[in-house]
């Protein structure tokens, strides 16, 4: 057996099984979901193998039959999900950026430990972390106890089951997603450039806007995209902290599968999320490539 041939056999040995596994159990399911989104829901749950574009029509506006009607509420929930995910991105950015900056200026040993501390909560059970926020935000919770003790409010403020709670919860959960790309961009920042900018008479704000911000932009974009994507499709955070009042598209999808039993419609909703995800991933890929070239 020639060397090239042996190498090829080794490569196939390594790649073969995992590739087949992922093709069957990752790509096939996604394709089937895509197919499902174009099928007709059966009357009593289940599905009829008949092409239909009305699942999308119900969300986007052209469905107008007896059983399949357009209802603006779906679009409204989708738009709200986009809005909440965007606000989560902005909040995480504001929360993480100065912290990443601070940590990047530490001594190496302390710095590694600080990064370890930032990533550690990611490994703490998601439910535990969200439950903690329920304890803080509920009417009898710590936040209200504190506010009333200080005298800022006489009656408990309703924090739980609001947009605020959902954004806060998602920000909390996704901090490592934003922090790590930001940090790796800020770490690469050339301090000499900052000094040069200051020496040339730029104010701190000008230096930040003209030097720091453009230099860390790749980190900002990458962090924003990988925070936005899981935030958009999230359904655990809105279920725990948003209750029935703040529904996101994830909740809607869950309902279609577990209570409404309209799988084709649920698939169409999921495809809507996937479309946004794919667009963002392609965008990120192109930006990363452009950055690599320059």
């Amino acid at each position: 057996m020639s060397l090239a041939r042996r190498k090829l056999m080794q490569l196939i040995g390594l790649l073969g099984a995992p590739t087949v596994f992922l093709l069957v159990f990752f790509f096939c399911p996604l394709i089937i979901m895509l197919v499902y989104s174009f099928l007709t829901p059966g009357l009593y749950g289940g599905v009829e193998w008949q092409f239909s574009h009305l699942n999308y029509g119900r969300i986007l506006g052209w469905a107008d039959t007896r059983y399949e009607k357009f209802d603006p509420v779906f679009l409204a929930i989708f738009l709200r999900s986009l809005r909440l995910a965007a606000m989560t991105v902005v909040t995480s950015l504001i929360v993480s950026y100065p912290a990443a900056f601070w940590i990047s200026r530490m001594r190496p040993g302390r710095r590694d430990f600080a990064i370890f501390l930032v990533t550690l909560p990611f490994f703490v059970s998601l439910i535990v972390r969200l439950f903690a926020w329920v304890l803080i935000l509920r009417p009898t919770g710590f936040l209200n106890q504190g506010l009333m003790a200080v005298g800022l409010t006489s009656a408990p403020v309703e924090f739980l089951y609001t947009d605020f709670a959902v954004i806060l919860g998602m920000t909390y959960v996704f901090i490592p997603f934003m922090f790590l790309p930001l940090y790796s961009a800020i770490e690469k920042l050339d301090l000499a450039q900052l000094e040069a900018s200051a020496d040339l008479g730029a104010t701190r704000l000008q230096t930040f806007r003209k030097v720091v911000l453009p230099a860390t932009m790749p980190g900002i974009v990458a962090g924003s995209i990988i925070t936005f994507i899981p935030a958009l499709g999230n359904f655990i955070v809105p279920s725990v902290l948003g209750g029935a009042k703040v529904l996101m598209i994830g909740n809607l999808i869950e309902q279609q599968f577990l209570s409404a039993r309209n799988w084709p419609f649920g698939s169409a909703l999921a495809m809507l999320v996937m479309t946004v995800v794919l667009v963002l991933l392609l965008l990120q890929l192109r930006l990363a490539r452009r950055e690599a070239q320059s």
Binding site: F26, C28, M33, G233, N234
Partner: peptide, 21 residues
């Protein structure tokens, strides 16, 4: 590139895709 996709895909999408499958 492809190995990144399962990590950041919203998990609900993968969940229901697997259920249907």
């Amino acid at each position: 590139t492809l190995m990144m996709v399962p990590m950041i895909m919203p998990d609900i999408v993968l969940g229901i895709a697997l259920l249907i499958f």
